[in-house]
């Protein structure tokens, strides 16, 4: 059997000299084309887990393989190259607020272009065309030259998706992509992620707060509790008992429609 696409082995992350344990001995694998949802309470280590995969956060110990390459061993330079294939979107969108939507989307191509040209704000014509194409895809072609902070939350997250699309990623990390959005907008954003997953074959790792969203979009779910992996399986396998184990005794299930 072929090696899985993403392998995480005994991943541990300790912050601040042993005071805060964010991840403890987490291991799992992801096949190409999966839509894996990470659930868990706030502070359970979801964000840290995603950030370890593109090494925005340096793991304390453990290994991560992506497409057979050991990510945790790459030099800073090699890691930069590797990051081009790993798109990421964020809870707070993290756009350049004072810049246009176009500029924001083009930053997705920074890794593919020579430094000196991008420092002057110059991007090749193909990139600009690709940017317009991707903006059209997320339904924002008429907003290309609008300042990013003039957009609504849902629109800003779609710009974030377009920026990730510019990288032509194989893997997409989504760190609570809809937590700052209202329920209706949440679904529209999640549908773009689903589309990327189905049509472009992008493997998606998304952390979500709501179990209902996780069930609706995930092909598989893993759950973290206080930095430990407590569940790994198909969405149907999370019953009431499992739910209470992950979220605590007093939790109630909330539906997002």
């Amino acid at each position: 059997m072929a090696e899985p696409y993403l392998v995480v082995e005994h991943l541990t992350k300790v912050y601040e000299r042993g005071q805060v344990l964010a991840l403890k001995d987490v291991s799992f694998t992801v096949e190409k084309g999966e839509f894996l949802v990470v659930i868990g309470l706030s502070g359970s280590g979801k964000s840290t887990l995603l950030r370890c995969i593109n090494r925005l956060v340096e793991p304390t110990s453990g290994r991560i393989f992506l497409g057979g390459v050991e990510i945790t061993r790459l030099s800073a330079r090699e890691m930069r190259k590797m990051r081009r294939k790993i798109g990421m979107i964020f809870q707070q969108f993290n756009l350049i607020k004072r810049a246009t939507v176009m500029t924001n989307v083009l930053t997705g191509r920074l890794g593919y272009n020579p430094t000196w040209r991008t420092l002057l704000g110059l991007f090749p014509k193909e990139d600009r065309e690709l940017a317009l194409k991707n903006l059209e895809r997320v339904g924002l072609s008429d907003k290309a030259y609008v300042r990013a902070d003039e957009l609504s939350g849902g629109q800003q997250q779609r710009v974030g998706i377009a920026r990730a699309l510019m990288q032509e990623p194989e893997l997409l990390l989504a760190d609570e992509p809809v937590s700052a959005l209202d329920p209706a907008t949440s679904h529209s954003v999640m549908q773009y992620l689903e589309q990327m997953n189905r049509e472009d074959g992008v493997t998606v790792l998304a952390s979500l707060h709501f179990l209902s969203l996780a069930r609706r979009y995930g092909t598989r779910i893993i759950a973290l509790k206080e930095g430990r992996l407590v569940f790994d399986g198909p969405p149907e396998a999370i019953d009431d008992a499992k739910f209470k184990e992950i979220y605590g005794e007093e939790a109630e299930q909330v539906e997002v429609r």
């Binding site: 925005l56 930069r80 190259k81 990051r83 081009r84 964020f90 756009l95 930053t107 593919y112």
Partner: peptide, 12 residues
């Protein structure tokens, strides 16, 4: 957050 976002695109 923005530093993270730009770093994650593979920028130098």
């Amino acid at each position: 957050g923005l530093v993270e976002a730009i770093t994650s695109t593979g920028a130098g």
